[in-house]
């Protein structure tokens, strides 16, 4: 699903904010090889990127709500806020996995 968007390579075109997780489309299209129609491949990459940026934006909002909301006594993240953020992201992914597993099981059971 998320195949290769964060392939871990680091070409980073200009206007990307440090906030952006975009790290270049490292492994994109690596697996199915060149047989796929380039246009379809491009469309797939675009959709995938859309999904990941969307997820990132939502995650940003959620972890802000959970960990930082209206606390500006300082411009630095406190230790507690940093730890909270790390956990927030990890748990968000965990919830994602749980939900997708349960959903898969549920829809499988309903099909029979």
């Amino acid at each position: 699903m998320f195949g290769g968007v964060f392939g871990g390579n680091s070409q980073k075109p200009a206007p990307a904010a440090p906030a952006s997780p975009m790290g270049g489309m490292g492994g994109m299209g690596g697996a199915p090889g060149g047989q796929m129609d380039p246009n379809a491949q491009l469309a797939a990459a675009e959709q995938e990127m859309e999904m990941v940026t969307d997820m990132f934006a939502r995650l940003g909002e959620l972890c802000y709500q959970k960990c930082l909301l209206q606390r500006y006594s300082d411009e630095e993240l406190t230790k507690a806020e940093s730890v909270c953020t790390d956990r927030c992201v990890a748990k968000y992914f965990q919830v994602n996995r749980e939900v997708s597993e349960k959903l898969a099981k549920y829809s499988q059971a309903n099909q029979q």
Partner: peptide, 11 residues
């Protein structure tokens, strides 16, 4: 800074 950190963990 928050966004940056979230970005790292997200990746």
């Amino acid at each position: 800074k928050l966004n940056e950190r979230i970005g790292q963990r997200f990746a």
